[in-house]
């Protein structure tokens, strides 16, 4: 039995049903909460923390936090905005995110969030410039882990939607990476039609479908037409 739950986001009253997360209820009500690791259709993971909000004064990831009667959620405050901006900045500085030569530019959620959060002077942190492998062994799919933000969307999509376990995490801490179930991509049972390698699954340009690079003209790409968060569904 689901019952109606009434709570507030930035002072606006929202009605949700019990069992929903803050993110789900906000999406339904048309309020956008920035996110990277969460995508509709997959279980939430709560790892990127970009969707962090304040619930009754305490920070929580809105993609995993369930709603409750009478809670007060802060979403678009200066404090939360600065927090999210720093998170996205760190993601940019930790990998090799070269927008000018990335096939995902224009449909990249990391880039689109940077625009939304107003990251215009990207020199707050040093660039780490890590050396990470590129796996182009598969005839249709390429894996460029230089651009990976470890959101785990491909891992969950492969497990939950494709029932395959093609992708998984390797290592811990700063060395955590996405790896494949086999010597390289060509030695896995991944297929171009899998949900795990579909265009909307990887939020950045880590999983690339070959021969589809730069197929949308500048100005016609996903986030050129609708900046992230301006449509109800972004993924």
């Amino acid at each position: 039995m689901s019952k109606t739950v009434v709570f507030k986001i930035d002072g606006v009253e929202i009605r949700g049903t019990s069992g929903q997360t803050i993110m789900e209820a906000a999406d339904k009500a048309g309020i956008y909460i920035p996110r990277l690791c969460d995508v509709e259709g997959l279980d939430p993971q709560g790892s990127c923390r970009v969707c962090t909000v304040k619930v009754n004064g305490r920070t929580a990831a809105s993609c995993t936090q369930p709603i409750a009667d009478g809670i007060e959620v802060e979403n678009e405050t200066m404090e939360i905005r600065n927090f999210r901006r720093d998170l996205v900045r760190m993601l940019f500085h930790e990998g090799n995110h070269l927008c000018p030569c990335c096939e995902a530019s224009g449909r990249c959620e990391l880039q689109a969030l940077a625009y939304r959060l107003g990251i215009l002077q990207p020199d707050k942190y040093p660039y780490l410039q890590p050396v990470r492998p590129v796996d182009a062994s598969h005839p249709d799919i390429m894996l460029d882990t230089n651009r990976c933000i470890r959101c785990g969307r491909c891992i969950r999509a492969s497990r939950q939607l494709d029932h395959k376990n093609v992708f998984g995490y390797i290592g811990r801490g700063i060395n955590k990476q996405v790896g494949v179930d086999g010597k390289d991509l060509a030695h896995t049972d991944v297929h171009i039609d899998d949900k795990a390698v579909a265009l909307g699954t990887c939020p950045v340009g880590c999983i690339i479908q070959k021969r589809r690079g730069f197929f949308d003209a500048i100005g016609q790409r996903k986030f050129d037409l609708h900046p992230i968060g301006t449509k109800e569904k972004d993924s």
Binding site: L98, Y127, Q129, V131, P133
Partner: peptide, 22 residues
């Protein structure tokens, strides 16, 4: 421009895969 800000395309030579001497 990106090259002045974060190295741009030339910076790709800093992280050549599998190379200890890029």
């Amino acid at each position: 421009g990106q090259c002045a800000v974060m190295g741009g395309l030339p910076v790709m030579r800093n992280a050549i895969m599998h190379s200890s001497d890029p």
